[in-house]
């Protein structure tokens, strides 16, 4: 049992190192800047926490929870990365959906803020972190699922990189939503499981991300053949019509 924390730490550190190596190798990080920024935060957070644990152990809990809250908020970067990669600015679906998606995201964030305020009313356990984890986690999982569903609906091909990032993050967010809610319900009984479940699920997400970005596999970019250019078609039609009219005039008045 005493080996388990060391095993998790070693596994997490190895996976983070592998992930950073794959992102840096071949410049993959340049293609996914928001994802790389989040990974960069995670790595620096863990290095900082490791240093604090050994240099100033008394400060460790406050640093742990504060950096954890920032971590939860920064996960929105991943959602933005998935959205902008699946529906780039040039895509017609982006133009059509951007307003609705923004409205949906604002509505969901409003709901989660309401849910967050309500945490003070819970009888058993008051933890801002757990309240944030479950409400933000739920909204983030819903947003990722919505993007993947829209991509499927519009038959937008999703490359391995973004697919892996989105699905791993969705699984992790939904799992932490359920786990942190259960912890709040039956705190004493579930807390030992949550203590292991949280880092293990995070390590699983890191493993899936490493697999996803192992080689650069972006989404297929729509070619000129896939796009309909109504302005171009109208222009060609007008040109042909003009020629037809001038030919008719020439025939009628030679």
């Amino acid at each position: 049992m005493s080996l388990l924390p060391s095993l998790i730490t070693f596994l997490g550190a190895t996976l983070e190192a592998l992930l950073v190596w794959r992102l840096v190798k071949g410049g993959t990080w340049r293609h996914y800047p928001f994802f790389s920024l989040f990974v960069g935060y995670v790595v620096s957070q863990h290095i900082a926490l490791f240093v604090i644990l050994h240099l100033a152990p008394r400060e460790y809990p406050s640093w742990y929870w504060d950096s954890g809250i920032a971590h939860i908020c920064l996960r929105f970067l991943l959602i933005w990365e998935v959205f902008r990669q699946v529906f780039p600015k040039t895509s017609p679906v982006h133009r059509m959906l951007s307003r609705q998606v923004t409205l949906g995201a604002v509505a969901l964030i409003t709901v989660l803020t309401g849910m967050l305020w309500a945490f003070q009313t819970y009888g058993s356990f008051h933890s801002v972190y757990l309240a944030m984890e479950r409400s933000f986690g739920f909204v983030q999982a819903m947003l990722v699922l919505a993007i993947l569903t829209l991509a499927r609906y519009y038959q937008q091909p999703v490359g391995r990189n973004i697919w892996g990032i989105a699905v791993a993050f969705g699984m992790y967010s939904s799992l932490t939503t359920a786990a942190s809610a259960v912890t709040d319900l039956v705190h004493s009984a579930f807390f030992p499981y949550w203590y292991w479940l949280s880092p293990f699920s995070f390590a699983a997400m890191l493993a899936m991300w490493t697999w996803a970005v192992w080689s650069y596999a972006p989404n297929r970019v729509a070619t000129a053949n896939d796009m309909i250019d109504p302005a171009g078609d109208a222009g060609r039609w007008a040109e042909n019509w003009g020629r037809a009219v001038s030919t008719t005039r020439k025939v009628m008045h030679p």
């Binding site: 849910m115 309500a118 819970y122 479950r134 409400s135 986690g137 739920f138 999982a141 819903m142 699922l145 699905v167 969705g170 699984m171 967010s173 939904s174 799992l175 932490t176 939503t177 359920a178 786990a179 809610a181 259960v182 709040d184 319900l185």
Partner: peptide, 16 residues
């Protein structure tokens, strides 16, 4: 609210 989040979280996990 917490109970529904447990349920929704589990459903979302299985969907993913």
């Amino acid at each position: 609210q917490i109970l529904s989040l447990v349920l929704l979280g589990a459903i979302l996990f299985f969907v993913f």
